[in-house]
């Protein structure tokens, strides 16, 4: 740096200059303005953080409730009906029971779930496998809600070893796999009890009982209507339904019914 530059630096770096007297009021006003501008930003930051916390909370709640619901559904679905009855009304051992039934249930309130139904009659090795699938179609406002197929894999054998009285085993399992269901100790409930507790199976022959069940059905299930396919005879439908398949509406009532049923038995 040159000599004169040093002098310039020395003189100018310590130099002072007059400033307008009203400058402070301008600066003060500017700072106030800046504060006012900052306030809504802070408010928004706080609001948005609160909102995000709320959203996360609600999301978690929804997730938890959905998770629980799906667990409940799984639980309902795994309530299997084991009928030890050999379907003596319509079938004999070795005879094919394969029938696909479609029931349209016009339901304005709830949908139906047909639980996995497994009929196992075989106390000995199976000779033939009978598959019986029943499709229940539920519709509400022209929309099909739930269609659940109940598939029955039946190993029919040795029908003589089975009591004439139909008995149904209810098995609750957290695992939907049927192989896990087999062999689990189950509750035994009589057919009458099923008919009482599941008045959907109201197409029983006895008129008095039918009326009774129908009345109960109407009371409990109000708008459920069952339309049977014309091509099928009553016995074709009733027999497997009556003994092998549990129709479980997908609402709490039926779930609680099942639980009640089990508790009652216990």
């Amino acid at each position: 740096m040159k000599e004169y530059e040093k002098i310039i630096k020395q003189r100018l770096s310590s130099a002072e200059h007059a400033y307008p007297t009203d400058l402070w009021s301008k600066i003060s006003a500017d700072m106030d303005q800046q504060k006012d501008r900052k306030k809504p930003i802070f408010a928004w930051v706080i609001l948005s953080s609160l909102l995000s916390i709320c959203v996360i909370g609600v999301g978690l709640l929804l997730y938890t409730s959905t998770h629980n619901t799906s667990n409940n559904k799984d639980r309902i679905n795994t309530v299997a009906v084991h009928a030890e009855a050999p379907l003596s009304d319509s079938s004999t051992g070795g005879e094919s029971l394969s029938s696909s039934l479609v029931l349209d249930i016009v339901n304005s309130v709830s949908s139906f779930v047909v639980s996995e139904a497994t009929t196992s009659t075989g106390k000995t090795d199976s000779e033939s496998s009978i598959s019986n699938s029943i499709v229940v179609k539920s519709s509400s406002s022209n929309q099909s809600k739930n269609v659940i197929a109940a598939t029955r894999n039946q190993n029919t054998q040795n029908s003589n070893s089975i009591d004439n009285k139909a008995s149904v085993n209810y098995t609750r399992s957290t695992n939907a796999s049927q192989s896990h269901l087999d062999g689990i100790p189950v509750l035994v409930i009589t057919e009458d009890e099923i008919l009482e507790d599941f008045p959907m199976l109201s197409w029983i022959e006895d008129k008095g009982q039918k009326n009774q069940v129908e009345a109960r059905r109407r009371k409990s299930y109000r708008t459920h209507t069952v339309r049977l396919p014309k091509s099928r005879t009553k016995s074709d439908i009733i027999t497997p339904l009556k003994k092998d398949v549990l129709l479980v509406p997908a609402n709490k009532n039926i779930e609680s019914n099942i639980i009640e049923l089990i508790l009652k038995e216990q």
């Binding site: 130099a15 200059h17 400058l23």
Partner: peptide, 28 residues
């Protein structure tokens, strides 16, 4: 500090009005 900063601003600005603006903005 305003007098020193005003002198500084004047060295970089074209006129005193511009320097005042710089001073105001700078202090804020």
């Amino acid at each position: 500090y305003a007098p020193t900063m005003m002198a500084l601003a004047l060295r970089y600005c074209r006129d005193s009005h511009e320097a005042e603006d710089v001073l105001q903005e700078g202090f804020v």
